[in-house]
Amino acid sequence: MKRETSPHPERILDCRGLHCAWPGGALALEDVDLTMRRGERVALIGPNGAGKSTLLRALIGLVPFEGEIHVEGLALRKSTLRDIRLRIGLVFQHPDDQLFSPSIAEDVAFGPAAMGLSADEVTERVREALDTTGLGEMAARNPLELSYGERRRAAIATVLSMRPVLLAMDEPSSNLDPAHRRRLIRWLQEQTDLTLLLATHDLDMAAETCTRAVLLSRRIVADGPIRDILADRALLERHDLEPPLGMQGMRYYET
């Protein structure tokens, strides 16, 4: 019988024996065990199709799974789905999949308003999230009219306004220009209280923002300090990854 509460309530996230399958039957995740403590910053790395996005979506019950997921000791069930979704803020891979309101301010306010917060509290959270992401002056703009980088920041703001206990980001640096990518890295570095789960191919970003790395290739193949995992070239190459450019030394193309 599945447990209703986690035996380790101090853990923010506790996944046990997680299996996810595609509609055709192929396994997307196989026997994944993952735990995270409050304030931990974990980079979820792996090649394309490793199951990174699937794992993040499973955490808030967007894909069917077998196994157990506990968030702050609360088991993921149909009855707890809403509570869990308010605890985990998931930033989707494509901001266009995340933004749906006529203006950025309304999109950012949607989550806090759905939580039943007072108008003053919602307004305060919207202001704070927009300031944090540098979108204060664009609050009234239609998300569909923004640049990709701005939409990405707006998507992050929609999640920040809900003040989740765990921020899960799916490829947050994809399609960002270098300046916005750097700004995002700095912002993540500044949020020292954040519990962060970052699914990414951008290993340089992972190295700069996380302390622990989990290498996923349908199942977890390595889990440890990010320095050790990123230094293991053979391990990375076996899983179609490369050490971060910062560790490789730049090699220029020469004819």
Partner: peptide, 16 residues
Amino acid sequence: DAMTARGFDGRIPILP
């Protein structure tokens, strides 16, 4: 997915 991820429970919330 985006709406349910943000706590949508079948009612569109009233915004400030």
